[in-house]
């Protein structure tokens, strides 16, 4: 607004008038979070209990992992709707190697660690492929990931060789329902570690700055020498990695890999979590804690519905309303 060649210091230290809407935009996910906590505290029996918190965090785990990856993708100005299929591919790869083996190659079932490593690698490769098609071949992210979403379930089934493989009574399934010290679910520990790592990445690394720059202005990013192709590939690969954590942990927890249902529709909840969390869909700053609370908000909606015997369809409506409010407050002035 102003140009003051003579008086550069005039504005320095001037108080910015803070607007209520801006505060709301910034802490929107916290707002929904608090509202839902209060609402739940009144209407849901036994809500303010350790067990509910534990349930919430365990159930929200896959959505939260995927949403963290989605946050980075959206920060770069893209979108990834193939996340659910990548979860299925990753779980299928792990289960095939760990339980079934590949008889045509004379491959006996292998141990958990190598099987998991392959599962993670498969998901990363899917993310890598997404990134290459988007950045190098310049195809729209929504198209590329739609293709991978559709093709992915088929691929997962080819990898698994059947529709579902049971992990019941395996040490992998035990790990999925492990409670550290009999109290803290292993998922909670993973969430803490991953969220801390993601916060570090976003706050401290060049990578995140470059992702944000690409999301904010891709042309300008190229012209300051950012390698937009590899940064984009990196973002989608990171998203793939987080999908693999989501897919494998969820498979272990429910002790089955079903290529039809593992990760089904997770992209919707993940995108909702990012929207509520305040990361702009046009690209820009990644808000990790926003997404964390956004994911919990999405889950709290589900919990209200489940624990109060409300039909599931209302939870979908409720989520839709929250997402609309979130996006409405995000809109450009």
């Amino acid at each position: 607004m102003t140009s003051k060649p003579d008086a550069p210091a005039v504005e320095t230290g001037m108080l910015k008038p803070i607007k209520a809407t801006e505060v709301f935009r910034k802490y929107e996910s916290m707002f929904f979070f608090v509202v839902l906590i209060i609402l739940n505290a009144f209407i849901t029996p036994e809500f303010l209990e350790w067990g509910t918190l534990r349930n919430t965090l365990v159930q929200v785990f896959p959505v939260m992992m995927v949403a963290l990856g989605m946050t980075m993708v959206i920060s770069s100005g893209g979108i990834d709707i193939s996340v659910g299929s990548i979860m299925a591919i990753s779980g299928a790869t792990t289960a095939r190697l760990y339980v079934t083996g590949v008889s045509s190659l004379g491959l006996e079932p292998v141990g958990l660690a190598p099987a998991l490593a392959c599962g993670v690698a498969a998901a990363c490769m899917c993310g890598f492929l997404n990134g290459i098609l988007i950045a190098k071949c310049k195809i729209q992210p929504i198209i590329v990931t739609l293709v991978v979403m559709i093709a992915g379930r088929g691929l997962a089934q080819i990898i698994l060789g059947e529709l579902s493989t049971s992990l019941l009574f395996t040490s992998f399934a035990d790990f999925g329902s492990l409670r550290i010290g009999g109290v803290i679910p292993v998922q909670m520990l993973i969430v803490v570690v991953i969220v801390a790592a993601m916060i570090f990445v976003v706050k401290k690394t060049n990578f995140a700055k470059r992702v944000e720059a690409i999301g904010d202005n891709r042309r300008a990013a190229r012209l300051v020498g950012i390698n937009t192709v590899w940064v984009t590939v990196g973002v989608y690969t990171l998203c793939g990695l987080l999908c693999s954590i989501a897919g494998n942990m969820e498979a272990a927890r429910i002790s089955v890999v079903n290529v039809g249902s593992l990760g089904l529709l997770v992209e919707l909840d993940a995108i909702a979590a990012v929207a509520i969390g305040g990361t702009a869909f046009s690209g820009g700053k990644a808000r990790i804690m926003g997404t964390v609370f956004g994911a919990i908000v999405v889950q709290l909606v589900t919990i209200i519905v489940n624990m109060n015997n409300i039909p599931d369809k209302y939870s979908l409506l409720f989520k839709a309303v929250i997402v609309i409010i979130a996006l409405w407050t995000q809109r450009k002035k």
Binding site: K204, T205, A220, A280
Partner: peptide, 30 residues
């Protein structure tokens, strides 16, 4: 269209081309 990163700070805009210089092992010194 090709210069500024509109939603980023003056600081980020100014240092975007010298990030490697301001960081160690990819970790940026604010």
């Amino acid at each position: 269209e090709e210069g500024i990163f509109p939603n980023m700070s003056v600081m980020d805009n100014m240092t975007m081309a010298i990030l490697p210089k301001l960081s160690k092992a990819g970790v940026l010194s604010q």
